[in-house]
């Protein structure tokens, strides 16, 4: 198994700062904006972004956790049913601007399921998608991200591994060759 480092800790922090700046550019003071982290791995990123935005905007930007397992289109197409994670959306998203946050955008199917799952909490005014890594040429659905940390050319056989630690000292993003 070969591992290649795509982003190291310093670069990742810079990338994330840039993504936050882009969000601030479009959302101003975040008065009507809600962040939704996608379970299971988008939530760490979402928490980090919320922390940075809260400092920058001087107000608590609401953050929810969204699990799309029950809305997936591959249920009953795999051997074992997918295990769900917690959904915690303690507010209505009716009329709000929602930013969906995930670590890696690959086939787009998780995002499709998330869009579906999100509707149970209201009809948002606008939905945007933020991803840390956008795997190019692997999309199976017409879905594109509005904010992208880094584009990566990957093969289907490869895997992107995101390692985030709680204090953001040893964050690493790897491209893994399965052989």
């Amino acid at each position: 198994m070969q591992k290649k480092l795509i982003l190291n800790s310093d670069l990742l922090t810079i990338t994330l700062d840039r993504l936050c700046q882009e969000l601030i550019e479009n959302h101003g003071d975040f008065a009507d904006t809600i962040l939704l982290g996608l379970q299971p791995r988008g939530i760490f990123l979402a928490e980090w972004i919320q922390e940075k935005l809260t400092t920058a905007a001087k107000r608590q930007v609401p953050l929810g956790y969204l699990d799309a397992t029950f809305h997936r289109d591959d249920f009953r197409r795999r051997e074992i049913p997918a295990k769900a994670s917690e959904t915690r959306v303690p507010f209505l998203i009716e009329g709000k601007k929602v930013v969906l946050i995930d670590d890696v955008l690959y086939t787009g199917r998780t995002v499709r399921a998330a869009l579906d799952a999100m509707i149970a909490f209201g009809r948002p005014e606008k939905v945007e998608l933020l991803v840390l890594i956008d795997r190019k040429h692997t999309r199976e659905l017409p879905i594109a991200a509005d904010y992208v940390g880094k584009y990566v050319n990957t093969l289907e056989s490869q895997r992107v591994l995101v390692e985030l630690d709680a204090r953001h000292k040893h964050n690493k993003i790897w491209l893994i060759n399965k052989d």
């Binding site: 029950f70 809305h71 959904t87 915690r88 209505l92 579906d116 799952a117 509707i119 149970a120 909490f121």
Partner: peptide, 11 residues
């Protein structure tokens, strides 16, 4: 959690 939402249905 699902059945305590306003919209209680998943597909």
């Amino acid at each position: 959690e699902v059945i305590n939402r306003t919209i209680k249905k998943v597909p």
